[in-house]
């Protein structure tokens, strides 16, 4: 193998390494961006590797394809058009080609890998990476997660006393949505209390139905779809009502006021 061929192989290797390194830095920025986004969701960080890998493969393939001696010639003006000429005429052997090869090899010895590194560009990328690393630390320290915010909101709802929810149960239990709902306890999220189901019992003392006194000749009546029978309508707070005759109301009232004064 000719010396110039070896030199060109070495040059190609150096160009490849520099190109791949630049691609890696770019891809690292993509990875950190993906990582920052993932931080806000309860997803594993491994998912940030996918955009990184896809970007790296695409970017590297494209960049490696675009590696050309023109780039080297721009960086080393003394090799302008010579490098391309030598590379394209490796199969030719004559006085001029040999002489040109000798000149090119001589000049290529002066080339260092650092010639191909754009320090300004790489510096910018490193600064961007530093800023992103700082953002990651900041977001991690606050432990901000969009999904947790939602969960906290639901928990806050659960902490509201059941009494505050009662009027809403009463208002919706036998009308509107709750009307067609086969679940007599209404919304499950409302019925739940600290993950325990509310144990509701209908007070049997309020019923006026006497099973022994059932008239079997009662006329069958079809329910209309839009008119619910009035006799089975429930009143939520009826359980706690007491039937005090009107003439005794004043006595009871005095009794309770005296008790409250004595305490």
């Amino acid at each position: 193998m000719k010396t110039v061929e070896k030199a060109l192989i070495e040059l190609n290797k150096a160009l490849l390494v520099v190109t791949l390194f630049t691609c890696f830095l770019d891809s690292l920025i993509v990875f950190m961006l993906a990582y920052i986004m993932i931080l806000f969701f309860p997803i594993s960080w491994i998912f940030a590797l996918f955009p990184f890998l896809f970007f790296f493969l695409g970017h590297a393939t494209n960049s490696v394809k675009n590696i050309s001696y023109t780039r080297v010639e721009k960086l080393v003006p003394s090799l302008h058009e010579k490098l391309r000429t030598v590379a394209d005429n490796l199969d030719k052997h004559n006085e001029l080609v040999e002489s040109l090869n000798y000149d090119v090899v001589k000049k290529m010895r002066e080339i260092k890998t650092s010639y191909f590194i754009n320090f300004k560009k790489i510096g910018k990328r490193i600064v961007v990476l530093g800023v992103m690393a700082f953002v990651i630390i900041l977001v991690s320290s606050y432990n901000v997660k969009f999904v947790e915010i939602r969960e906290r909101f639901v928990e806050d709802l659960k902490e509201i006393p059941l009494e505050d929810l009662k009027p809403r149960i009463g208002a919706s239990s036998f009308s509107g949505k709750g009307f067609d709902d086969p679940n007599i306890f209404g919304e499950e999220s409302i019925a739940e209390l600290s993950n325990l189901e509310l144990d509701l019992k209908l007070n049997p003392s309020r019923t006026e139905i006497d099973i022994k006194n059932v008239d079997e000749n009662v006329e069958k009546k079809e329910f209309e779809e839009n008119a619910f029978p009035v006799d089975i309508e429930g009143v939520a707070d009826a359980t706690f009502e007491e039937s005090i005759p009107k003439e005794h109301e004043k006595i009871v009232k005095n009794y309770f006021s005296q008790i409250s004064q004595s305490t």
């Binding site: 000429t85 394209d88 005429n89 001029l96």
Partner: peptide, 9 residues
């Protein structure tokens, strides 16, 4: 005739 020329040229 021996002067080399790059392919792109």
């Amino acid at each position: 005739r021996q002067v080399p020329v790059a392919n792109d040229l």
